[in-house]
Design a protein around this nucleic acid. Structure first.
Length: 570
RNA sequence: CGGGGUGUAGCUCAGGUGGCAGAGCGUCGGCUUUGGGAGCCGAAGGUCGCAGGUUCAAGUCCUGCCACCCCGACCA
């Protein structure tokens, strides 16, 4: 492809209002164009990357025995009402009506559609197991789309569904998908952690997430470098610590005027935050107000709280509610003088802490050196703390690493969550009707492109790995008005194309500096620079990923590049 | 959904106290240049987010709306 005719236009200025590196370079490099919040178009170069990613996924899915199909995007409401998700999926569903008033949604995921298709076809255990998948656009009216392709309202997803006759067979399907996913991410050259995940409201017995470690991640993953354990931080259990061995000092009431935050209190009293009792009041829908107590240096994990309460309908109490319920201000909530009708939960982190600083529900005063048994009694304990770097691994007790990442894949063993309400039954060997056991397996295809840029870039631009690069080779002719350079470039371009190298030929009438800048930004892995040295019969080869450059006789250059590309593809 | 911010040329932005719509980059024409976003000359390019209001006069002041970005809670 000649760049002078190619529909790829880079930006010289940094895109405004853009935070994530991947978002910035994809826009600046001309790979995507924004249409509205969370909606993007792919230019030819962006689309080539998308295609290459899809092909890698497709190959591995096919290899695992899954069969590709294509479901509809416009989905009738009736199916979604069968599973109850027409309402429970909430305002994230894009809903619409046809001219006759019949209701539809734009598919955000396809459990309903696939289950409907399968129940109309599968009647016997002889037809099972089967795994079906598609690569297709999905629509979710996200509350907060952001970071370009990382979270869009319209995005490309690979979704697969397994159908089995029994639990054991379903487990095998699940494992085969997990294995395929592992291969897919390796082929994509992405560093990914396979983490145990919450099954959440979807239910089922098993779930894993495939998380790429990136600066702009939205998932928090804890992993252990010594035993290999990894899990989404929200499901990592933190047990009660040992009782602290420390001399109990006398309880004392001290004046702390206007000291409201843990940080201020810690500075004011010269006491570490870990010796302060933090109290947070929640209002839970349909239940008593809930006071959560946690060590001052830790944060509450509201996902854990949600799991414990069994509802997501809770929120922090407002200043007015704290005032009317406890008669105090935020910052002075404590365990003393608590009124009736307030539920109390102790986080495990507080167990056995001696000489605590505790507020007493009276503005501007705290107790210091409060001790369990002597000054107060414990209530019900639970694990509600966010996992932090250095917490003990639940498997081997080594210190955990905690990092942010991007959830690129998520697999679930669903069980009969959809087959049961939708009556997707088959007749088993014993002649009885049973619901099909299902699993579902998603990969955020367009999100993968962002993850790749997050993991492969420098301060000049993108460094695409060969298997997903928009082109494998860029031939840069530094001065197209120089006859010799132009002729050599043309010749090399033809040779490269003949030898099957996916080549972009920069034949634009631009200055050398501007061509180099574009080349670094667009990030094609190999570059042949045709410049002054053609007079000596030489061209320069550059490797974008490693930064290496070296001169070669021009007759050898294409074969050499071909070798390097083939090596990178393995 | 709560909190914060921004909307002016294709892009990045400037336009105190109301008074002729601006710059740099990009684009087009011409000349010169060609190993790290070149130089000179000339030109085109605007619903100042939208609607209403105040005023002799609104990019600027007031009201309402819309869009987009960022921080938090949820999802691939």
């Amino acid at each position: 492809m000649r760049w002078s005719r190619y529909f790829l236009y880079t930006e010289k200025e940094e895109p405004a209002e853009v935070e994530a590196v991947s978002h910035k370079y994809l826009l600046k490099g001309g790979f995507i164009k924004q249409v509205s919040a969370g909606v993007y178009e792919f230019t030819p170069a962006g689309f080539k990357v998308l295609r290459k990613v899809e092909e890698i996924i497709r190959k591995e899915m096919d290899r695992s025995g899954a069969q590709e199909l294509l479901l509809s995007v416009l989905n009738p409401a009736e199916l979604w009402k069968e599973t109850g998700r027409w309402d429970s999926y909430g305002s994230e569903l894009f809903k619409l009506k046809d001219r006759k008033g019949r209701e539809y949604c734009l598919g955000p995921t396809h459990e309903e559609e696939i289950t409907d298709l399968v129940r109309r076809v599968i009647k016997s255990y002889r037809q099972l197991p089967v795994i079906l998948y598609q690569i297709q656009v999905k629509f979710r009216d996200e509350k907060r789309p952001r970071f370009g392709l990382i979270r869009g309202r319209e995005f490309i997803m690979k979704d697969a569904y397994s159908f089995d006759a029994d639990e054991m067979s379903a487990m095998l399907s699940y494992e085969s998908m997990k294995f395929a996913y592992d291969r897919i991410f390796k082929k994509l050259r992405l560093k990914v952690i396979i983490a145990e995940a919450s099954v959440g409201q979807i239910g089922g017995s098993q779930s894993h997430e495939f998380i790429a470690l990136t600066d702009y991640g939205e998932a928090k993953v804890g992993y252990c470098e010594s035993c290999g354990y990894a899990a989404n931080a929200e499901i990592i259990n933190l047990p009660k610590p040992q009782i602290q061995q420390e001399e109990e000092k006398p309880l004392q009431k001290v004046s702390t005027p206007g000291v409201e935050t843990i940080k201020e209190l810690s500075d004011f009293l010269n006491v570490p935050a870990s010796k302060i009792l933090k109290s947070v009041l929640y209002m839970v829908e349909g239940k008593k107000p809930l006071l959560v107590l946690i060590r001052g240096d830790r944060e509450i994990d509201e996902n854990k709280l949600e799991a414990l309460l069994g509802t997501e309908n809770f929120r922090l109490a407002t200043d007015e509610e704290v005032e009317s319920l406890l008669g105090t201000k935020k910052g002075f909530i404590g365990i003393f003088n608590l009124p009736e009708g307030v539920e109390v939960l102790w986080d495990n982190s507080l167990f056995g802490v001696k000489n605590l600083v505790v507020a007493l529900n009276e503005p501007d005063w705290h107790y210091i050196n409060a001790n369990p048994e002597r000054d107060f009694t414990y209530g019900k304990f639970a694990d509600l703390s966010q996992v932090e770097e250095g917490d003990a691994c639940p498997k081997c007790q080594s210190p955990l690493r905690v990092e942010k990442g991007l959830e690129l894949g998520h697999i679930f063993l669903l069980g009969t969550r959809y087959s049961e309400p939708m009556k997707a039954y088959f007749t088993d060997r014993d002649g009885k009707e049973k619901p099909i056991i299902m699993g579902c397996y998603g990969i955020g295809v367009s999100r993968i492109i962002s993850a790749l840029v997050e993991q492969y870039h420098d301060d000049k631009g993108i460094k695409w790995p060969v298997p997903v690069a928009p082109f494998e080779l860029l031939i840069t002719c530094l001065n197209v008005s120089d006859q010799e350079q132009a002729q050599v470039s043309e010749k090399l371009y033809l040779e490269a194309t003949e030898k099957g190298i996916d080549t972009l030929y920069d034949d634009r009438e631009e200055s050398a500096g501007s061509k180099f800048a574009d080349a670094d930004l667009v990030g094609i892995p190999y570059r042949i620079v045709v410049g002054r040295k053609v007079k000596e019969g030489k061209v320069e080869i550059q490797n974008r990923l490693s930064g290496e450059r070296w001169d070669l006789p021009l007759e050898e250059s294409i074969d050499r590049v071909k070798e390097l590309i083939n090596k990178d593809k393995q």
